[in-house]
């Protein structure tokens, strides 16, 4: 039972992160490989405040969102000037730079030693099994985000965003400042993913820079593509599948020495098969 809650919580955290990723990548065509770094920023911002300044959780929540939003905003200036493959490359590069910062800025992040004993929301202590309320908070957050994003995408603002994805030039000619639209999407996607990062930090209670390197960014993108770009429920599906599948492999009784590699090979196979047969992913509507 505890184990199921554990899987459910991880799936929820990643689902939230992928909602952020998909919002940027699926709906705006910004195929970014830096959301792992965003999770890291949210995680570290919240963890530092929670652990060393003892702030109440809601404050850390706001701080995580704000810090990541700020980082996304700053990053958007150089990044949004680029298109297509160059965007992908620089975004990928940012995940390395962010990793270096997490690792080297020892005064702030404690470097390779990481942060330990990060507290979670006080609410979870209401029940003996802290996981239950933690999961409940996450699910509520996911629902709110789903509802919020849905509303945004349905609005006239959302129409412009999708138009920008299809053809930026035409949208500009129609009179829209596409850059500020794309920037706002990027920032919001960062905020959402940053908050997911905070919950990750609180849940596993120890974080270190290696958690947030390019592997995480790639994983988030794969989850988004698998579930389907430009599909909100696809984000959740993709995240959950890629959390549950490796756990299933564990039960196959594979000898330990090849388990990790087998999991990775299965990721690779999924990617290739997806790209070959169904690049839109499970529920997606946007073809890259």
């Amino acid at each position: 039972m505890d184990y199921l809650l554990h899987i459910a919580i991880l799936s929820s955290i990643y689902s939230l992160a992928v909602l952020g990723q998909n919002y940027a990548s699926g709906y705006t065509g910004l195929i970014s490989i830096n959301h792992g770094a965003f999770m890291g920023i949210g995680a570290y911002a919240g963890a530092i405040l929670l652990k060393w300044y003892g702030v109440p959780f809601p404050v850390a929540f706001l701080a995580a969102g704000a810090a990541t939003g700020l980082a996304a905003w700053l990053l958007s200036f150089p990044l949004l000037k680029l298109k297509g493959d160059s965007f992908v490359l620089v975004s990928f590069g940012f995940s390395f730079i962010a990793f270096n910062l997490f690792l080297n800025w020892r005064g702030l992040t404690n470097g390779a030693l990481g942060l330990k004993a990060i507290p979670g929301p006080e609410l979870v202590n209401l029940l003996d099994n802290t996981k239950i309320i933690f999961l409940a908070i996450l699910l509520a957050l996911i629902l709110i985000t789903l509802w919020g994003l849905h509303k945004i995408l349905q609005s006239s603002y959302g129409v412009v965003i999708r138009a920008t994805r299809e053809n930026q030039k035409v949208t500009q000619i129609a009179g829209h400042c596409t850059d500020s639209y794309r920037r706002s999407v990027f920032v919001l996607s960062g905020v959402i993913t940053g908050i997911a990062g905070l919950f990750l930090a609180s849940y596993i209670s120890t974080i270190d820079p290696t958690l947030f390197n390019y592997h995480l960014s790639v994983l988030l993108l794969i989850m988004a593509i698998l579930g389907g770009l430009a599909s909100l429920k696809g984000s959740i599906a993709g995240a959950t599948l890629l959390i549950v599948l490796p756990e299933l492999l564990r039960f196959l009784g594979l000898p330990n020495s090849i388990l990790a590699e087998s999991q990775q090979i299965s990721y690779g196979l999924i990617l290739i098969l997806l790209m070959y047969y169904r690049p839109v992913g499970l529920f997606g509507t946007y073809k890259i």
């Binding site: 493959d85 992908v88 990721y267 690779g268 999924i270 990617l271 790209m275």
Partner: peptide, 29 residues
Amino acid sequence: PMVRRGGSSLVILVASFGLLIILQNISAL
């Protein structure tokens, strides 16, 4: 075959990444 199926360069990039992961882990094994 992917090019023939009309895959965009981004799709092929992602697929090549999948291939990288597979080859990397086979090497590890």
